[in-house]
Computed example of a mutant assay.
Amino acid sequence: MLVALTVTVSVAALVLAAWCGFAAYRDQPTKDWHFIGMAVVTVLALVQLVVGIVQLARGEEPAESSVIFVSYLIGAFAAVPAAGFLSLSERTRWGSVTVSAGAVLLAVLEVRLYDIWGG
């Protein structure tokens, strides 16, 4: 898997986590700008999902099971959108905390994806 893409997704997720964490610190709910940031991170995760599946289709194999690898790819893709939808139902600072936690979860999943691929 592409290491540069994994690092890019991780850094973008951590920037989003810090941004939403700062909003929570200031007692603000998620705003439109936060949702644009979530969209950018989600598109990066989608690109990673497509690249991972294409590499599997080309015959490249992860160090661990392919099923586990695809499961982590799907989970990484769904982490930030799920947190974004949850933040819509909680229009207080806790919505920002939820998005921040989802973005940190995505960064952790990226580390695990790197390990599963054989990094």
Rank of each mutant, 00 (worst) to 15 (best):
M1N: 07
M1L: 09
L2G: 12
T8P: 08
T8D: 12
S10Y: 07
A12Y: 05
V15R: 15
V15N: 14
G21I: 04
G21N: 06
A24N: 04
Y25M: 13
D27W: 06
T30E: 14
W33E: 13
H34N: 15
F35M: 15
G37R: 11
G37Q: 09
V41R: 09
V41Q: 07
T42K: 11
V43M: 14
V47C: 10
Q48E: 14
V50N: 06
V50G: 03
V51K: 06
Q55V: 02
A63I: 09
S65F: 03
S66K: 11
I68E: 15
I74H: 04
F77N: 04
V80M: 03
V80W: 07
P81T: 06
A82L: 13
G84K: 02
L86G: 13
L86W: 13
L88V: 10
L88H: 06
S89V: 14
S89W: 14
S89R: 15
V97Y: 10
T98R: 08
V99F: 03
V99E: 00
A101F: 07
G102R: 00
G102V: 02
A103M: 03
L106G: 05
A107C: 01
A107V: 01
V111R: 03
V111Y: 04
L113D: 03
D115Y: 09
W117L: 02
G118S: 01
